[in-house]
Amino acid sequence: MSLSETAVDRAPSSGRIQQHRRYLMCKPAYFTVSYEINPWMHKADPTDTPKAVRQWQTLYDTYLSLGHDVEVIDPIEGLPDMVYTANGGFIIDGKALGVRFSVGERRGEEQPFMDWFGSHGFEVVEPIATQEGEGDILLAGDTILAGYGFRSSIESHREIADVFDREVVSLHLVNPNFYHLDTAIAVLDPVVGPGGVEAANIAYLPNAFDDRGRGILEERFPDAIRVADEDGAVFGLNSASDGRNVFISPRATGYDAQLRERGYNPVHIDLSELLLGGGGIKCCTLELRGGRS
C-alpha cells in the first residue's frame, strides 16, 4: 500500500477510531547480523544495510503521513539491534522502565535508551530483573500482559506491577520462534479512547503459548483474532496499531483478511530485511506514553 493510499483512509467509516501515537524509532544505519541470538538470525546469510534503511524509512514516513509523532534515537556503531527500539523500555504516564537484556550482545543498548528517556522528560526506573521492554510487555486497556520463557524472567513481572501499579498477567511463551510476546500478540484497540479507558481487542497466535496461557487469553479476550501459524511465521503479529490502521507485513494475508472483517485498515509495510535479525514492525516501534514532546 502506498503512502497516498494510506493517508486518505483516516476516516472512521468502520467505527474504528484512529488515535494519535508517539513512537521512538532508530534508523538501522549499522544493521547487520554479526551474531545469532534467536532462531531467525544466521550469520552466513548476507544482509543489505541500505535496503534495511529504505524499508525502515517507509515505516517512519507512513507513521508521519498518518499524523503520528516519531522521535528518533541515534544509532550506535557496534549495536546493530538498536533498530528494535521496542526492546529499549516500557513507558506509561511518563514513567520509563529500562531493560536488562538476557543476552550479552545487547547489553550495550541498556544505558543509551535510559539516557534518552531521561533527557526527554521521562521518569526513568532502572530495572533489577531481566526483561526486554515492549518486546515482552504490552499494555492492553488497564492491564499489562507480560511474557516470559525465553528472554524475560517471570520475576520481572512483580517489578513491573510495582513500578506501574497495574495488574500484570503472566503468559508463558513456549515456541522459540516466537521468543518475545510482541511476536505472538498484537494489541489492536486504543488504550484510551473517547470517554476514558477502553477494553482492548487483541490478536494472538495460540501455538506460541502453553495451555494455561491460551486459557487466560480465551477467558480475558473472547473476541480476539486468533491468527494462523502461517501468518505468525512471517511475523504478522509483530504489528503496530493506532486503533484503526494496523501496520502489518504484506505476507500476512490471512491476518489481513481477519483485520478487514473486524473493520480495521491493514497498512502493508515490508520489513523483510530486518526480519533477518528477528524483528518486524512492532520491534522497530516503541510507544512513548507521556514525557516531553
Rank of each mutant, 00 (worst) to 15 (best):
E134P: 02
E287D: 12
G195D: 08
E110P: 15
Q55W: 01
R260E: 13
D256P: 06
D231S: 10
E230N: 09
A161T: 03
P28K: 02
G195E: 09
V227W: 00
D165T: 09
G88Q: 07
P75T: 08
R166V: 05
I269V: 14
P39R: 09
V103W: 07
G278W: 05
R292P: 04
H157G: 03
W56D: 01
P50N: 12
I269H: 02
G135Y: 02
E218C: 12
P39L: 10
A161C: 11
T58F: 08
L286W: 02
T32S: 12
D81Y: 00
L188A: 12
A224V: 12
Y255E: 06
D223W: 00
P112K: 02
G278L: 08
E110H: 12
P12A: 13
R21Y: 04
L276D: 03
E132D: 04
E123L: 08
A252M: 03
E5T: 11
I37D: 02
L217E: 04
E5W: 08
I281F: 04
A257K: 15
K51R: 15
D210V: 07
M41S: 09
D74W: 08
V227E: 00
D93T: 10
Y23K: 08
F209I: 05
P206E: 07
E110A: 13
I269Q: 05
L66C: 14
N201M: 04
V70W: 07
W56K: 01
R262Y: 07
P190R: 12
R212E: 15
S65W: 02
V246R: 00
I225W: 03
D45P: 01
A86V: 04
F221L: 04
L288Q: 01
A129G: 09
N265C: 14
G88P: 04
K95P: 03
R292E: 15
A186Q: 03
V163W: 05
G135S: 06
L3N: 10
A203F: 02
D223L: 11
R289N: 14
N265V: 15
G118H: 07
E36C: 06
S152A: 13
G88L: 08
